[in-house]
Design a protein around this nucleic acid. Structure first.
Lengths: 352, 352
DNA sequence: CCAGCTCCGGTAAACGTTTACAGAAAACGT
DNA sequence: ACGTTTTCTGTAAACGTTTACCGGAGCTGG
């Protein structure tokens, strides 16, 4: 781990100036003779260009950061999975930040952009405060936000459309003849919680179904909390024939409870999850789930950022990803064929 | 996004030299008066220290890389989940590399260590070639390898013990009275595939059960392949009463097939997975799985690396993580209580 | 044989920090 | 008041690149 060779070492060894070395290494026009000498010296010395020095001079780090609430979350994971290859193909490295859903941490990430250790940032904040907006406006590097920001915010933005997503799910349930559709939601003070509550009410209205607040239970976005909330809802309202769950984990919790209470899914109660994570396909019965396009959002965000890194000053863009409904056994009753596409599993080599 | 202020800007504004500015910013002893002036100027200008320049001078980047085969893999994911907070607490950023299980890409990562864009690397190679070993020996920054390396390799190393893991599973199945235990494995030319095959044979011998090659089927580490392999094994060998699967995805595929063929799990056939990923708890019936301690391995690797970054020259260490058996319904038949610990789910906020 | 070109390569400055060194200023003792 | 010690600050070099600029070498044409 001794100090590696620099262009100076090479220059000496090859008997040329460091400028020539740099030129050769960067493929700038140079006499063949010089090229050979430099290449030979570089080869012998095992030279590798120092990325830090290069970044200092060039003012580019070839790194991009992605800040999410929690790496453990399958939703963000799906995003990373898409972001990484896009960036890699363009020659960027990915720096990961897990903010643990703490607003202060997010602000911190935004602030540290000033350190210029990355060329740009993709961020998916849990909620967007005034402080966020101020920092985004003042950011010293391009930022792409995944998630809603107030109208008129000058920033590249990728959104899901959970309103339409919920509507898709409720239409589906309605078409299956379900009329007492409960909502098991997460906290109302989060962006997703709030928007799903609103979308639920709206969709019911469109369908001509009455809004009954007994059919709504607020828990949190975890399996255990989902189970608790679903149990409470069922106890209060035994006649419910479908459960719309604000995410897949909640839905898994609901499945646990329904199973324990001896109800059949979907015959007695149909269940719909949200986010369409890997877990939805793995559960039994497999879970019908609204995909809000985490993967597409990640990809779109990465592409927006790359474009911005090349184009500097263009108008901020807004990309909205269309939701899809992945129908599975928890509503339709029919299990999909056993053969699954390879893409929803992935390499599972594991070193021992 | 105009050029930000540098210590020169501050020095000018505060009427002191850049050396003083640097000292104040680094908390070195300085006259109170000077401190005040510098702080005021820095504040007014919204100064943020340039990480690249600092790195160049200090020869430290405060970044660490983690190279894995595939971010989509729950096993690596569990590692990232542990590595990230450890590094973060120590003031390091995490740079992610997904090598897509391509050896050349892994070599590339090792090579790029010479660029010094990170202070160290944690790598979990799918298989370890001579080229790997050469690069590791020549690496210009500390490396920690997750996975087996040949005896005597001078490198910090964290290993799982899949031999004991398989033994745990087979003992468990044997204790439940199962005698015709099949193995659904992944490719034999991968480290995990090979070691699991060997461990299976060994465990059978210890238990006094005959090794029957009809009971072994090789597929790949995906759900669909797992299903195919399990189907082949069952067709050839209808009397099998337990399936040891080389990972959880294979096990899920096996569950699909068993269900489709009308066999009850675990009454007719017990199933054990491996890696104990989130999917194991989510599936139905929930999957008994051998945990090879991905989380612990990640944590151990991060800690080894940090220690090495501080201690420079100490002897390489080997940490072996003990496997555990997570018994669930696919062998015991009893579903766990509905309430799950919060830790196996995680925040699922999601911006829309 | 020389003006005018082109082509190369070297010198040096710059990117934004940190830090060794030395000199200035302040504090102290006698 | 002076030497000595202590504390502080400024100058300049260094980290390893890239690149603007300039001068020298080699050609061409007249």
């Amino acid at each position: 781990m001794a100090d590696g060779p620099t262009i100076n070492t090479i220059a000496e060894r090859a008997g040329v100036s460091i400028a020539s070395v740099s030129r050769v290494l960067n493929g700038l026009p140079t006499r063949q003779d010089t090229v050979r000498k430099v290449m030979a010296a570089a080869e012998e010395l095992g030279y590798v260009r120092n990325a830090v020095a290069r970044s200092l001079k060039s003012r580019r780090t070839n790194q991009v950061a992605f800040a999410m609430a929690d790496i453990g979350n399958p939703v963000y994971l799906a995003m990373v999975r898409q972001i990484q290859p896009v960036l890699k193909a363009a020659g960027y490295r990915l720096v990961l930040h897990s903010t643990d859903a703490i607003a202060a941490d997010e602000i911190d990430v935004l602030h540290s952009l000033g350190e210029r250790y990355v060329d740009g940032l993709i961020m998916s904040p849990l909620r967007v405060t005034g402080e966020h907006l101020k920092m985004i406006a003042a950011a010293r590097a391009p930022v792409v936000i995944i998630g809603s920001v107030p109208e008129g915010t000058q920033v590249d933005n990728v959104r899901a459309d959970s309103r339409t997503g919920v509507k898709l799910a409720l239409d589906h349930l309605h078409a299956l003849g379900r009329r007492r559709i409960g909502l098991v939601n997460g906290p109302l003070d989060t962006v997703p919680g709030a928007s799903r509550a609103a979308a639920y009410a709206e969709a019911l209205e469109t369908l001509g179904l009455p809004y009954d607040e007994d059919l709504v239970e607020v828990g949190d976005f975890y399996r255990a909390e989902g189970a608790r909330a679903a149990a409470a809802l069922l106890a209060r309202n035994p006649g419910v024939d479908a459960l719309m769950c604000a995410n897949d984990l909640i839905a898994l919790g609901a499945l646990d409870v329904l199973r324990a209470s001896g109800r059949r899914v979907p015959q007695d109660v149909a269940v719909v999850g949200m986010d369409d994570t890997d877990l939805a396909a793995a559960s039994w019965p497999s879970l019908t789930s609204v995909s809000l396009g985490s993967a597409e959002r990640g990809k779109a965000a990465a592409e927006l950022l790359l474009d911005r890194l090349q184009n500097g000053e263009r108008e901020p863009r807004l990309v909205t990803v269309r939701p899809r409904l992945a129908v599975r056994a928890s509503t339709s009753g029919a299990e999909p064929a056993v053969t699954l596409s390879r893409t929803d599993s992935n390499t599972e080599g594991e070193a021992s």
